[in-house]
Design a protein around this nucleic acid. Structure first.
Length: 437
RNA sequence: GGAAAGGUCGCAUAGUUGGUCUAGUGCGCACGCUUGGAAAGCGUGUGUGUCGCAAGGCACCGCGAGUUCGAAUCUCGCCCUUUCCGCCA
C-alpha cells in the first residue's frame, strides 16, 4: 500500500513499475475514483456541518417543526451520499491494495525468473569420484527420513524426520538462532496460527482478504461448528513463514526512533498449501507442506540508505551461514517480473544441490520500504515529532528441509555416510560428526 | 465445553432517565516559571485519521446496522478481551 498523495504525484513512475512487475492495474481509474471520492466527502462534510448546527440549536430550546423538517431532509441526503461514498470507497480500497512499490532504479527489468541476474558465486560445485545418491535415497538408506509413512499419515508431501535426520533439523535451527542472537537479533517463537490482518499486512493476500488470494496459505475453518442453529466462524490462518507474525508484532503501534532499527529472528513451523505447484518437485524434501525455519526481520526508520544497508547486512548473515556450513552457493538479484507488488529490491540465495545438478533456493531477502508498514500501521516518531511509517525488511535465515537436502547430497561419502558440518556438531547428540548406517 | 463481565482520545478511569460530552479527571509526556543544579510545586499544552494553501471542516468513544431533529449514552448483529468452572498438553 502506498500513500495516495504520493500516487497522485507519481502516476507515471508507478505505471512503469507495475508494467515491469507484470501487474495489471488501472491507475487512471484510481485517480478518477480518488477525485470523485474527495468531492463526495467534501459535500458530505458540508451537509453534516449544517446537521451539527441544527442539533446544537435543539439543545437550547425544543426544536421547531421547521428545524425538525430540515433535519429530516438532511438525514435523507446524508444517507444517499453515504451510500455512494461507501461504494466508491470500496472500489478505491480494492485498487489501492494493488498499487506496487516502485523498485530501486538499478533493479534489472525482466519478464520472469529467467531474467534474474547472478551477482555472486562462492564455492565450487563438488565432483564425486563415485556415483552420488540423491537425498531421498540417502535418507532412506540411513533411515533418517521416512517419506512413505509420512504420506500414509499426513498425505501427499508428508514426511517423518527420524534419528539423525531429526537431530540435524534441530541442530540447523539451533545454529541459526544462535548465530542471529549473536548478531544482535531478538529471538522469538511467534504464533503460527494468526488472524487475517497479519497475512494481509505482509502482503500474502493479493487482494484485501483471503478470498481474493491465490495460493500458499492454509485457512483453518475448524470453527464452522453449528451451535443452536448458528454457525460459529473462526477465521484463523496458518503462516507460511514467521515473517508476517514478526512484522505484526508492533502492528498499530508508534515506536520510538531511538529504538530503531529493530531486528527480530523467529523460529517457526511453516505451512504451505502449494496449490498451483502440482507436479513440481513432487518427490523429496524440496517442496513440502510443513517445515521448520528461522527467519530474520528488520524494522528501520524511513531512510532508503539505511534500509539498503540492513538488506545487505541480512544477506551477508545468510551467506555467512552457507559458508560456515560449507555449501557452495550463489546470489541472484531478482528482476522486476519475478518480484511481488510490495518489493523494492530482492535477492535470492541458492545452494548447490547435486541431485538437481544445479542450485536450489535456500533463502530470499526482500526490502519492502513502507508498503507493509502502511498495511500494518507501524509508525515511529522522528525528532520533530512527526509520525512516519517504518521500513520493513525480511530474509530467510535457515529453512530446514532445503539445507538438509544440500547437506546430505554435498557431504555424502563413497560408503554412503554423510559428514555433519563442524558448526552443527555441538548441537548433535554426542557431538556426532557423521551419519552412517 | 459451561458461566459471567467488559471494550472510552499513550496508560488508568468518569460518563448508561439521549441534547451543557466537538468527551471530564489522574498518571505520563512536552515546554515554561522557580532553582546553584535537581526534585517538588505552579502555569500552559498534549489523541488518531481525513480534506484544505490556509482559516477551518468532517469522521472516530471495539466493528457494522438501526431508532431519533439530535446517540459514547437506546435497539439488533458481529468481533475481540478478561475472569471463574470443567477437560487437557
Amino acid at each position: 500500500m502506498l500513500d495516495i498523495k504520493f500516487i497522485r504525484e507519481n502516476v507515471e513512475a508507478i505505471a512503469e513499475a507495475a508494467k515491469n512487475k507484470n501487474i495489471k492495474i488501472d491507475l487512471v481509474k484510481l485517480i478518477e475514483i480518488d477525485e470523485e471520492r474527495r468531492k463526495l466527502q467534501a459535500k458530505l462534510d458540508e451537509i453534516r456541518t449544517r446537521k451539527n448546527e441544527l442539533a446544537k440549536l435543539g439543545q437550547v430550546s425544543r426544536p421547531t417543526d421547521e428545524q425538525i423538517g430540515e433535519g429530516k431532509k438532511l438525514k435523507a441526503e446524508v444517507g444517499k451520499i453515504e451510500e455512494d461514498l461507501n461504494k466508491i470507497n470500496s472500489e478505491f480500497d480494492e485498487l489501492m491494495v494493488q498499487v506496487p512499490t516502485i523498485t530501486a532504479k538499478d533493479v534489472p527489468v525482466g519478464k520472469d525468473d529467467s531474467e534474474n541476474i547472478e551477482i555472486e558465486r562462492e564455492g565450487d560445485p563438488l565432483k564425486f569420484d563415485f556415483e552420488p545418491k540423491d537425498h531421498i535415497q540417502l535418507a532412506k538408506d540411513l533411515d533418517i527420513i521416512d517419506f512413505d509413512r509420512g504420506v500414509k499419515v499426513s498425505g501427499y508431501r508428508g514426511y517423518y524426520m527420524k534419528n539423525e535426520g531429526a537431530s540435524l533439523q534441530m541442530a540447523l535451527m539451533m545454529y541459526a538462532m544462535d548465530k542471529l542472537t549473536q548478531k544482535g537479533f531478538t529471538l522469538m517463537i511467534p504464533p503460527t496460527l494468526v488472524k487475517e490482518f497479519v497475512l494481509f499486512g505482509s502482503g500474502y493476500f493479493s487482494g484485501k482478504n483471503f478470498n481474493e488470494s491465490k495460493d500458499e496459505i492454509y485457512k483453518i475453518a475448524n470453527g464452522e461448528i453449528e451451535v443452536d442453529g448458528k454457525t460459529n466462524k473462526e477465521n484463523k490462518f496458518l503462516i507460511g513463514t514467521a515473517e508476517p507474525s514478526l512484522l505484526a508484532y508492533h502492528a498499530g503501534e508508534i515506536l520510538e526512533k531511538k529504538n530503531l532499527p529493530l531486528k527480530f529472528c523467529g523460529f517457526s513451523p511453516c505451512y504451505r498449501s502449494e496449490i498451483g505447484s502440482y507436479g513440481k518437485d513432487t518427490k523429496g524434501l524440496y517442496r513440502v507442506h510443513e517445515f521448520m525455519k528461522v527467519e530474520q526481520v528488520c524494522l528501520c526508520e524511513a531512510d532508503i540508505d539505511q534500509a539498503e544497508k540492513l538488506h545487505k547486512e541480512m544477506l551477508e548473515i545468510s551467506k555467512e551461514m552457507h559458508r560456515e556450513i560449507g555449501l557452495p552457493f550463489r546470489v541472484l538479484e531478482i528482476c522486476t517480473g519475478d518480484m511481488s507488488a510490495g518489493k523494492y529490491r530482492m535477492f535470492d540465495l541458492e545452494a548447490w544441490m547435486p541431485s538437481r545438478n544445479g542450485y536450489g533456493e535456500t533463502g530470499s531477502a526482500s526490502n519492502f520500504l513502507d508498503w507493509q508498514s502502511r498495511r500494518l500501521n507501524v509508525k515511529y516518531k522522528d525528532e520533530n515529532g512527526n509520525k512516519k511509517y517504518v521500513y520493513m525488511l525480511n530474509n530467510t535465515a535457515i529453512p530446514s528441509p532445503r539445507f538438509i537436502i544440500a547437506i546430505l547430497e554435498n557431504f555424502q561419502q563413497a560408503d554412503g555416510s554423510v559428514i555433519i558440518p563442524e558448526v552443527l556438531r555441538k548441537w548433535m547428540p554426542g557431538n556426532a560428526n557423521l551419519i552412517k548406517n
